[in-house]
Write a protein that binds this DNA or RNA. Sequence first.
DNA 1: ACATAATCAGATTTTTTTATCTGATTAAAA
DNA 2: TTTTAATCAGATAAAAAAATCTGATTATGT
Lengths: 144, 144
Amino acid sequence: MSIIFSRKCEYGIQAVLLLTTEQQGGIHTAEEIANRLKIPKEFVSKILQELTVNGIIFSKKGKSGGFALAKNPNELKLLDIVLAIDGPDIFNRCVLGFPNCSDKAPCPLHYKWSQMINQTFNMLGDETMDKFKQLTINKIESIQ
Amino acid sequence: MSIIFSRKCEYGIQAVLLLTTEQQGGIHTAEEIANRLKIPKEFVSKILQELTVNGIIFSKKGKSGGFALAKNPNELKLLDIVLAIDGPDIFNRCVLGFPNCSDKAPCPLHYKWSQMINQTFNMLGDETMDKFKQLTINKIESIQ
DNA sequence: ACATAATCAGATTTTTTTATCTGATTAAAA
DNA sequence: TTTTAATCAGATAAAAAAATCTGATTATGT
């Protein structure tokens, strides 16, 4: 199957979106996140840890602990989440897998693709956060 | 690692591009294709078979056999190749993995993403074939 | 007709990704 | 201070994708 993001990355983005729908400081446990998104708890725990290490979210240990957004959602870009989870490969690697693809020796998709990548992966910055939140809330509800 | 296309799909696209750089009817063996693209021969053989079944390329069996483009390159779209190898999943599946994502209940990336998909996956139709061929030749040479 | 060189088909192995398990550590609440 | 409920860390298992192997079939060229 062709995929765009790894499963890990999909779950990570979903989790961040869920946290985004809450007030700043609204804290959720890994189990709660897993249940609402219907994804494996242990797996999402690992991903939440990576997001924590990379400063996208923060974690509170111990009883009544959990996870919450570290940044103001307005400053958050999709780029940051993907970088935190899967690293820079998706941006460095040629979309068709040609090893020497570059601006100077571009593959047939090179220009359109990097244009698209820039547009898409910076999107959480220029969308208004209200609209974004609303869409996300709809989505979370539609899962349940 | 986040990827865009499966490895299988990448190899398939690369192989078709290689065939595109030849005159219509120019035939190449799986081994030749594997060597020029520096990808595993047995794996690309399988992929070439799938492309054959789906009518993207045709195969000639026996001695002096091999593979060649089945269509006029002008009629060929990236979409066709991806569909032949990985099926329609990439177009049906939500980019963020939300199970109920649709036009009516869109995920935050839904609209931008489908816009991008349409632009990108139909591209081999509206690019002029000469330019496309030139880019591909550059690319193949830069690998070696 | 025979040898050769290719595709084709299916099974198997290896590697990577996804998912699970176990236990340690942390901190709040009783 | 003890119990409880959470993150954290590392090992392991299961599933999927990528790669390899073996042999059969096909058709060309000698």
